[in-house]
Simulated scan of single mutants.
Amino acid sequence: MTTYSIDVTLSQTKKEKPQSDQLQFGKVFTDHMFIMDYTEGQGWHDARIVPYQPITLDPASMIFHYGQSVFEGLKAYVTKKEQVLLFRPDENFKRLNKSNDRLCIPHVDENLALEALKQLIKIDREWIPTAEGTSLYIRPFVIATEPYLGVAPSDRYQFIIILSPVGSYYKEGIAPVKIAVESEFVRAVAGGTGTAKTGGNYASSLKAQQLSDSKGYSQVLWLDGVERKYIEEVGSMNIFFKIDGEVVTPSVNGSILEGITRKSIIELLKHWDMPVTERRISMEEIKQAYSEGKLEEAFGTGTAAVISPIGELFWNNEKMVINDGNTGEVSQKLYDTLTGIQNGTVEDPFGWAVEVE
């Protein structure tokens, strides 16, 4: 097994840790961070764990001007047996490199990234909250750091991992959320960067999100960027519908992010011999299924929220209240199973949980 050289500098002062019942999402960060540099001709170098601190960049660093960056999101959990578990971290670092590919960023060694993450978590282990619904959120990201005002791939980068103890992503928790279907703005198109996890995708979504917030909706549901009729994904989640006993989700089409939770849900449903299909789904089909009483459930999936039941869809000035605004049976079973695997309370027949030893 390859041994990676990672320098460690421990913090001399420890931050005060928040109470579990006061945790918000992504507001507080642990005592340490991982950093590695890339220089053209030298490759990735100087892997190190250091005290959490600001980073200093030249004002001309290309990240500020051309947005060359990618990121990931995953979580660590503490089990009742005091084990620390990660959920499918190999899939996250594999997807990071897919995003790197699209943004012309050099690949990161996935094994080194996982080893660095494990070492970082071991150092900041006491930051992992243990209350129900809490976890340690992990944010790996890469930014272009070359100071150059030219439209070209950077020749310098930093790969950084930071950690944040978190509560529920939505204040509603597992309770159903309200979603507004977005008909004016577009998230992505095939051939664009929709399949990459890059900051620009989220920046361009903020206007629609701001407008939906003002109307009392938690997220927006994006439609395709060409015909504006086919469902793509929710702001921070992939989406599933249960229609007349069958679970359906939009097929990956070149503009939808390939969610790891999405992939896990499909594999779980197949494991349970429940009918699940990936295909094109139009809003008209959803409206018709709703009108006929066949739209039984809808839910979003993602690392941050895991499973987020959808209690209401707002489209064409009409509200569709799904399952009387309650969490559906399949949504609840998926949530219980997935979080159970993540927390070590449910058997993991897939080998998804990776222990930090």
Rank of each mutant, 00 (worst) to 15 (best):
I310F: 00
R95C: 12
E292H: 08
V220M: 04
V220T: 07
S69L: 10
E357R: 09
W44D: 09
P153W: 02
D155H: 14
V220Q: 00
V181W: 04
S5T: 12
G43K: 08
K98M: 14
S251L: 11
T145A: 06
L96P: 00
G293P: 12
Y170R: 04
G194H: 03
Q332M: 11
D101T: 06
L206S: 14
Y77H: 10
F64Q: 02
K122G: 08
H271L: 01
V177A: 12
D336W: 06
M283W: 13
E347K: 13
V28C: 12
P18V: 03
G43F: 09
D46A: 12
K263P: 02
E16K: 14
A188S: 15
E297W: 02
G311A: 06
V220C: 09
G325C: 10
R95T: 15
I231N: 02
H45Y: 07
G192H: 04
E132R: 06
E329T: 12
K171E: 14
A116F: 06
N316H: 14
I35A: 08
T56V: 11
G26K: 03
T303D: 00
K197I: 02
I121N: 06
N111G: 14
T2W: 00
Y170D: 02
N238R: 11
D109T: 10
H32E: 05
P165V: 04
P250W: 05
I281S: 00
V28T: 15
R139K: 15
Y157I: 01
G302V: 09
G133C: 07
V247Q: 00
D244E: 08
I281W: 00
G194F: 03
G328D: 07
V166R: 03
T145H: 01
Q158P: 01
S154K: 05
A144W: 10
T2D: 06
P129V: 06
A289N: 03
K171D: 15
I160Y: 04
E233K: 08
V247N: 00
K27Q: 15
Q342S: 01
A289L: 04
S183T: 15
V234Y: 00
G300A: 10
F240V: 07
S331T: 09
N326R: 11
S212D: 01
L268C: 13
I105C: 11
M1R: 12
D58P: 01
Q342W: 00
F241R: 02
R125A: 10
S236G: 12
Q219C: 07
Y169P: 09
Y335G: 04
L206Q: 13
E278G: 05
A116L: 01
D90E: 14
V84P: 01
K15F: 09
V354Y: 05
D124V: 06
A353M: 11
I174Q: 05
Y290R: 06
S204P: 03
L269Q: 13
V226C: 08
F29K: 02
L223D: 02
E40M: 05
D7K: 14
K215V: 00
E296P: 00
N323P: 02
G192I: 02
E278F: 04
Y148S: 15
F25Y: 13
S251F: 00
T2E: 13
K98R: 15
L211P: 00
T30A: 12
Y202V: 08
T130N: 08
K94A: 15
I286N: 05
P106K: 11
W272L: 05
S212C: 07
T327N: 01
T3E: 11
R88D: 01
P250K: 02
V78D: 03
F87L: 12
P176V: 04
H45R: 13
